[in-house]
Write a protein that binds this DNA or RNA. Structure first.
Length: 365
DNA sequence: AAGTTAGACAACCGCTCGAAC
DNA sequence: CGTTCGAGCGGTTGTCTAACT
C-alpha cells in the first residue's frame, strides 16, 4: 500500500500564483500562523495543494525575505558554503538571512554553476578523467534535454540521436563571467583556440602564489591546463562537476568524517582521525567506499601511488581498488604525476588542501 | 519580422525523517 | 512497535522572456 498523496490533485489549481491567491494566503497565515499546511487551503479557501501553499509562503510571501539582487558578498558566501556543504541548500540558506533554499539553488544553477563551468581546460586530460567527464555531462543536460524534446516534436517523435552540440558563443555581457572567453573562436565554429600564453595558467599561477604554494609545486600542476588535442578531447568535453564534487569532498572532509563517526558507520574505527590513515566506510552494498580525499591518501597501513604514464596515456595505480574518482583527484593534485605516501600525515594534507583551496578560489574568482 | 534557443525563475514531485497516534 | 501524517529537502520540470538566427 502506497502512501496517501498529500492532497487530491483533482480540481486544484496549479502553476503560477495570482496576486489574489497571494493575498488570501498572506492574510490567512498572518492571522493563523504557519503550519497545518494540509488543511490550510480548505480553511483559507484556496484551490491549491498544501505543499504549494507552504512553498509559496516560504519562498515568496514571508515578510522577512530579501528578494533578488544577490550581492557579491552573498555570492561569495554561497560559493564558499557550497564548497563545504555541497547541495544542502537549506543549510546554505540558513547562513544567508532573508534568502531561501530555492532562491539559492536557482541562483547556483543559473549563475554560479555556469560561471564555474565556463572554465574549460582542454589539454592533458588523463583518459580516465575524460571518461568520467563524458559520463556525466551534467552541465548541458538540461539544454540537451530541451533541444532533444524540441527536435522530437519537430520530427514527429523520433528520438534525436545526435552528438551534443556545444554551447554558442557567449554574449558580450556574459563573457565577463567567463575566464575562457578569450579562447572562444568568433567564426561560429566553436573551436577553442588557446592563446600563446594562456590566461588560465596565468591566473592559476597568481592564485596559487597568493595562497603561498611554492612555485615548484605549481609548475607541476600547470601542465593540466595546456592543450593536447591528440588526446581526442573535444571542446567542452571537460565539465567540472566531477572535479568540483571531489573538491567539495575535500573541503568538507572534516564534517564528513565527523558525520561518519557519529553515525557509527566508520569501519576504520581504530584508525579514524589519526593522521595518514584511511577513513573508509562500508556502503549500502557492503563494499568499501571512500568518503573523499582522506581515503585516497592512504589506506590503513598502505602507501598509495599514482602515476600517469605519458607514453601510452594510461593510468596505473598502486592499488587497484582506487577508481576513477581517485584518478580525478590525483590528476588535479599533481598534474601528470602523483606519487607518495601519507605517513607524514596532516602537514601533507594541509599542503594539498591549500593547493586545492587556491584552485577553488581561482575557479570561483 | 518570425521562429528558435537558452537563461532565469517559479513551481512541482518524490523522497526522507521525525512526531504523533 | 508499526503506521500515518506533516513538514522539509533536493532534484526536476514548466513557464516566461530576452537574445539570437
Amino acid at each position: 500500500m502506497g502512501r496517501a498523496p498529500c492532497c487530491e490533485k483533482v480540481g486544484l489549481k496549479r502553476g503560477r500564483w495570482t496576486a489574489e491567491e497571494d493575498d488570501i494566503l498572506r492574510k490567512y497565515v498572518e492571522a493563523n500562523g504557519e503550519g497545518s499546511w494540509r488543511s490550510l487551503p480548505k480553511n483559507a479557501g484556496l484551490l491549491r495543494c498544501g505543499k504549494s501553499c507552504r512553498l509559496r509562503w516560504i519562498n515568496y510571501l514571508r515578510s522577512d525575505l530579501r528578494r533578488g539582487n544577490i550581492s557579491a558578498q552573498e555570492e561569495e558566501m554561497i560559493i564558499n558554503l557550497h564548497a563545504s556543504l555541497g547541495n544542502r541548500w537549506s543549510l546554505i540558506a540558513g547562513h544567508l538571512p532573508g534568502r531561501t533554499d530555492n532562491e539559492i539553488k536557482n541562483y547556483w544553477n543559473s549563475h554560479l554553476s555556469r560561471k564555474i563551468h565556463s572554465f574549460r581546460p582542454t589539454q592533458f586530460i588523463p583518459p580516465a578523467v575524460a571518461a568520467a567527464v563524458r559520463r556525466t555531462g551534467r552541465r548541458t543536460a538540461r539544454s540537451v534535454a530541451k533541444k532533444t524534446k524540441n527536435s522530437e516534436l519537430k520530427a514527429g517523435g523520433g528520438a534525436a540521436n545526435t552528438p551534443v552540440p556545444m554551447p554558442t558563443t557567449p554574449t558580450p555581457d556574459k563573457e565577463a563571467l567567463s575566464s575562457t572567453a578569450g579562447w572562444q573562436d568568433k567564426d561560429n565554429s566553436n573551436n577553442v583556440i588557446p592563446p600563446e600564453s594562456s590566461p588560465l595558467e596565468e591566473r592559476l599561477m597568481e592564485s596559487l602564489c597568493a595562497a603561498g604554494t611554492e612555485e615548484r609545486e605549481i609548475r607541476n600542476m600547470t601542465p593540466v591546463f595546456s592543450m593536447n588535442e591528440e588526446m581526442g578531447m573535444e571542446d567542452g568535453d571537460l565539465c567540472l562537476d566531477d572535479i568540483m564534487e571531489d573538491l567539495n569532498g575535500i573541503v568538507g572532509l572534516d564534517e564528513e568524517r565527523e558525520r561518519e563517526s557519529e553515525s557509527g558507520r566508520n569501519a576504520d574505527s581504530g584508525e579514524k582521525g589519526s593522521s595518514g590513515n584511511g577513513n573508509r566506510v562500508v556502503d549500502d552494498r557492503g563494499s568499501w567506499t571512500s568518503i573523499g580525499e582522506w581515503n585516497l591518501m592512504s589506506s590503513p597501513g598502505n602507501s598509495w601511488e599514482w602515476d600517469w604514464n605519458h607514453d601510452d596515456h594510461t593510468a596505473r595505480g598502486g592499488n587497484e581498488e582506487w577508481g576513477q574518482e581517485e584518478n580525478t583527484l590525483s590528476w588535479l593534485w599533481d598534474g601528470d604525476t602523483a606519487t607518495g605516501d601519507c605517513t607524514d600525515g596532516d602537514s601533507e594534507m594541509d599542503r594539498r588542501r591549500e593547493k586545492h583551496n587556491a584552485m577553488l578560489s581561482w575557479l570561483m574568482s
